[in-house]
Write a protein that binds this DNA or RNA. Structure first.
Lengths: 146, 146
DNA sequence: TATTGTTATACTCTATAACTATA
DNA sequence: TATAGTTATAGAGTATAACAATA
């Protein structure tokens, strides 16, 4: 070190909250992806599967909106889940344009298994935060507005 | 609404802190990108430019490590900054393998301008968080460990 | 042998436009 | 005419392997 104060190279970026958010989120999501990978899931497919398990019959457009993704991009995600036999596409009787998504028994089991693995992963990543601090973190994040 | 409790479709995901982090970070970085775009900068190029302005003479490998990116991916970022005449590449005399990165006068001015725009953007995005809450948020994020 | 910058490549996520079939 | 699902496509970020020049 050439300087007694030993300033980090990215010190000029640390004044930006968004920089801290991005670094931390990248760490967390990368670890979550590693946890999901051996189960044949990625973050996007796990998220979609979870919504479908919690709201059977949800339409693709509703699903995409809930996850903040484009309808067009949701198609490949749903294709993957369908090919893995974790969900089924069923044409709606009331509105024959729409497709209702339903989880299979295998899909429900896989979602439960992945959920538990992610809760364990979060217990590890957030081990240095108390339950109150974890709730505070989510609360503060929810106060950010577009 | 069919249910009196009116549960959101992504409710099953909200128990995961990583989900809140990802949604919030996507919002913040998307807005930051919109702010930087008219200045000819993206988040990655702004970050690199900031490090180079704060640590003139930094090497490419050091820069990439500081930003948590691959050396190979930093090349295109630095190419862009060089083509915009905001930085220069100078072969090191001590170690002729290495390249020292220096900001130009125009680069320093552009970085200052972009920094101010991002501080304004953060004041808008984090308007509902007090100064203490903003510090708490960063503090909590720093407690997350790999 | 190891490291620096570089190229090539591939994969994920994301964003937009346009098509089809239904409403 | 508007909407639901779909296809095609392109951009940005990210990850790995391999190479030439230099240490």
């Amino acid at each position: 070190m050439t300087d007694t104060t030993d300033i980090a190279l990215d010190d000029g970026l640390r004044e930006l909250i968004g920089y801290s958010m991005k670094r931390a989120t990248t760490m967390v999501t990368a670890d979550a992806a590693r946890v999901l990978e051996p189960m044949g899931l990625r973050i996007t497919t796990f998220s979609a599967l979870t919504v479908i398990c919690n709201a059977p019959g949800v339409r693709q457009t509703e699903l995409a909106a809930a996850l903040g993704m484009e309808r067009s991009n949701s198609v490949a995600v749903i294709d993957t889940l369908e090919k893995s036999h974790w969900i089924t596409r069923e044409r709606s009787a009331q509105d024959r344009r729409a497709i209702a998504l339903h989880p299979t028994t295998a899909g429900i089991m896989r979602q439960k298994q992945a959920r538990l693995a992610l809760l364990t992963h979060e217990d590890r990543m957030f081990a240095d935060l108390s339950p109150i601090e974890r709730r505070d973190l989510v609360k503060l994040l929810s106060k950010i507005r577009a």
